[in-house]
Design a protein around this nucleic acid. Structure first.
Lengths: 191, 191
DNA sequence: ACCTGAACACCGTTCAAGT
DNA sequence: ACCTGAACACCGTTCAAGT
């Protein structure tokens, strides 16, 4: 019975991501992915349930790319690094990235990202009851900006302008959180 | 030669919007729109250039729905009302709304919305050089949240939770702007 | 001027058949 | 177990033809 598999779920997702990066999300069709793998479209259905499942897999790949910052870093640097990493992923994969704004946090990788933000907010002094809300609003602001860049909503503006926009957004994030991340390095903190 | 037109651009857009509201954006096909108008798909091409132009038209319809608040209102109430109106449009048209996050501000209706925000920010004391940046960040945060609701990213949360999320987002907006909108009504302001 | 009919190259997906 | 071939009901869009 056995027959050595020519393709697998990972190869399918990698092909689909490459197509999306090169030619946009609309170019990701079952036919196109199959062609890139030198296989018929129907061969894909042994490895992914359908096209929706394939897109879910692509989103999970992006989430896995987000660089979770080391726990040793101060919480504000962790938030800043995570936001920058998310934005970098949007720049690398503008075709797939907008899908992130329509997926609830249910997969493993998505939960890890959220937990990382929760932990940083905890250390920032956010009360436990507010963690969910603050995380939703912060991640929505970051995702909204990154999606806008990915889709070309800001296409009339120079990259330098958008970089400064993002820096300002980062400053807003900091201003909205309760406590300063580390006290100004004066000896007063020892008193 | 003349032959009385059976359909027009407006009827096409209204049909397309109704289909999107009922069955989602993917259900908006040239065939489906034509069928609803009791016409062949090819008849549409006399009134819209192609499907992309039809979707552009839908976005313009949503922008026209945004209720621009009266200029007599204090600027903070204007921003609050505009944000609430944008969110209400997302709730009414969840299928089409996410397209707003991929369109630059070029059409007439979009420019009117942006100008309305610019004027409110001016009265808030935002320096002229910062108007563009602040407007982009504020509108991105509002759109990001509304799109998240429209797509179902927050589908695991109750409506009451999301209402409170949005209220908190509104408070953030206020906190980030330079001056208080109207002095606290104590006699001290007369001194 | 506006709409139709026929046609084309695509889609996603099924089913039975091959190895 | 995995892949293929044939098939189906759709897509967006063209072109020439009808009124």
């Amino acid at each position: 019975m056995g027959r050595e598999a020519q393709i697998g779920r990972t190869a399918i997702l990698e092909s689909a991501l490459a197509i999306a990066d090169d030619d946009g999300l609309d170019a990701v069709t079952m036919h196109a992915v199959a062609k890139r793998l030198q296989v018929t479209p129907m061969a894909l259905y042994r490895h992914v349930a359908n096209k929706a499942a394939l897109l879910d897999g692509l989103v999970e790949m992006l989430l896995t790319e987000f660089p979770l910052p080391a726990r040793q870093l101060p919480w504000d640097e962790r938030l800043t690094a995570l936001a920058a990493g998310i934005r970098a992923t949007a720049h690398r994969h503008p075709g797939v990235f907008p899908l992130l704004l329509s997926r609830p946090t249910v997969t493993q990788a998505a939960v890890h990202v959220r937990d990382s933000i929760h932990q940083a907010l905890r250390e920032a002094g956010v009360p436990e009851t507010d963690l969910g809300r603050i995380e939703r609003l912060l991640s929505t602001a970051i995702l909204g900006f990154a999606v806008s860049e990915a889709t070309g909503r800001f296409r009339l503006h120079d990259q330098t302008v958008l970089d400064e926009d993002f820096a300002e957004l980062q400053r807003w994030m900091r201003r909205l959180l309760p406590t300063p991340p580390h006290p100004p390095d004066s000896g007063a903190t020892l008193a």
